[in-house]
Amino acid sequence: MADAVEIRGLTKYYGKSRGIIDVSFNIEEGEIFGFIGPNGAGKSTTIRVMLALLYPDSGSAKIFGLDCMKQSREIAKRVGYLPSEVFYYEGMKVRELLNYSASFYKKDCSKRIKDLSDRMNLDLNKKIDELSFGNKKKVGIVQGLLHSPDLIILDEPTSGLDPLMQQTFFELIREENKRGAAVLMSSHILGEVQRLCDRVAIIKEGRIIKVEKISTLKENSVRRFKFEVESSIPEDYFAMEGVDGLKVAGNVHSFIYRGDVNRIIKKLSAVELVNLWAEEPDLEEIFLHYYSEGV
């Protein structure tokens, strides 16, 4: 299948300060792709280059096979974008803003506007400046989806939405995805990426350090071991390859282990155990693991 997004060696500096360096990844059509990293890692920069808001220093970005710089107009017809913070023309009513937004796409969006606003519980007759942050975000969501885009780009989409609205929002995104839309969602919250995405790119200090399937990331035989011992064991007892983040709280020890399970079981069997837990770590821990490695 053709790729919805193809990014190759994208680099962008703001003067001398780093934006992104040599960023490459692909998003397949119909895929939900997560983009994760701490604030300032370069998530928004990448997205803004894709939307032709920023001009890259080098590298290329293509959406649906079209060049993001040269063919931004064609691309924009098929892309819906929800910025992390939404700002609209003050003094306009929600309905007017949405109609203005719809007027850029040469199709009738009135039914979509009504459906989406009903779903998001959004009052179309309010003025934009009277809306709370969360409600502005809702306007942003409707505005980003009203033309049934084939690629939906979400930059930190859930900030400002209450949990119930987040739920509705995720449902909406899943429906759009079922309809055939590819989704790129940036976030620094792993939980929401884990909930929604098929694959994830991890970005740190402007560089992609890993692109991985969510399932692989979770499997990859990384386990959290937690056990209680009868009497204390030497501090360096678990100083072996694959063990990371050893924590000791009284007699309870825990660490993340990556590698051949038999090796660690053999090691553990030599210790007098009171209790043992082997758990699947959440993405947060795996993520921290990637970061602490200083890749």
Binding site: L51, A52, L53, R73, E74, A76, K77, V79, Y81, P83, E85, F87, Y88, Y89, E90, S101, F104, Y105, Q143
Partner: peptide, 11 residues
């Protein structure tokens, strides 16, 4: 007024 994002991501 930060509406450039809105306008410039339109076709």
């Amino acid at each position: 007024e930060k509406t450039a994002d809105f306008l410039m991501t339109k076709p």
